[in-house]
């Protein structure tokens, strides 16, 4: 235990210091000035005391830890086989990290299993589990994002914490699309330096654009030197609302015959019209 050795050293040192101190005290009678001069020794002693306190508290901590491990032992006794298996897996992972070779790992696993799990069929279960996991991942690697958009597949594309974020950036009214295209041009000109992934201009949202990037700093960097965009106030879109940003109300409104509509653009802008 390195900790123990450390405190042992401390004690030795403290003893040495004390001896030294006694010598100093003998000298103190005729050489009080020097006593003051060697103040650092006193300091050292004081520090040792502190350390000692620390050591004692450390001992207390050790004690607490010991009671904790006892608790865990109890847990392990009543624990279910599944949890033990998990623990086993963790152990294996750890060994792999350390860099043990595969046959060694197998040997360790078997030994460990023999100790913890007397049932032999558990091993087969694990192999089966491994196979099913491999199959599942092999299948997910073939998921085609572009084709056959069913709702269920769309759900699987919902953003996670690992995906880039959407940042809401203020931009001049009426310039939303232009700003998006300008940033695209900037990305082409600058190459990979511009670390933003995409820029979204929503038709029904004036005064703002969304920039997709991993970090707010990337957004600010991309907006540097751009006209019509104000990146001083960048707001992150909550991950749960990211999909809503890209949700578009279908323009194909079912116009029923005999319903009244208002012309919005063109020569007849503002006129009321009847669908015939």
């Amino acid at each position: 235990m390195p900790r123990r050795r450390y405190y042992g050293d401390d004690d030795n040192e403290e003893e040495e210091e004390n001896m030294y101190d006694e010598e100093e005290e003998e000298d103190e009678l005729d050489r009080g000035r020097k006593r003051r001069g060697s103040n650092f020794i006193d300091d050292d002693v004081a520090e040792e005391d502190d350390d000692d306190y620390g050591g004692r508290s450390g001992d207390r901590r050790n004690h607490r830890r010991r009671t904790g491990s006892e608790f865990f032992d109890l847990e392990a006794v009543v624990d279910s086989d599944e949890d033990e298996e998990d623990e086993d897996d963790d152990q294996d992972d750890f060994i792999v990290d350390v860099g043990a070779e595969i046959p060694d790992e197998d040997g360790v696993r078997r030994e460990y299993r023999r100790r913890l799990l007397p049932q032999e069929d558990q091993e087969e279960d694990l192999e089966e589990l491994t196979r099913s996991i491999q199959q599942r991942y092999a299948r997910s690697a073939h998921v085609d994002y572009d084709e056959d958009a069913t709702d269920v597949e769309q759900q699987s594309l919902l953003p996670s914490v690992r995906d880039p974020k959407l940042w809401m950036v203020k931009c001049a009214i009426g310039h939303e699309r232009k700003v998006a295209a300008c940033l695209m041009q900037k990305a082409i000109d600058n190459g990979p330096e511009l670390q933003i992934r995409s820029v979204v201009a929503i038709d029904h949202l004036q005064n703002y654009i969304y920039i997709e990037a991993d970090k707010e700093a990337h957004v600010r960097e991309a907006c540097k030197g751009m006209r019509n965009i104000n990146a001083t106030n960048v707001k992150q879109v909550p991950i749960k609302e990211m999909a809503d940003v890209l949700k578009v109300e279908s323009k194909a409104v079912d116009l029923a015959r005999d319903s009244w509509v208002r012309v919005k653009t063109g020569t007849y802008k503002g006129d009321l019209a009847l669908v015939v």
């Binding site: 699309r177 990305a187 992934r197 979204v200 038709d203 890209l246 578009v248």
Partner: peptide, 8 residues
């Protein structure tokens, strides 16, 4: 509806 510039 809507415009998105996709850089990456």
């Amino acid at each position: 509806t809507g415009l998105i510039s996709v850089m990456d």
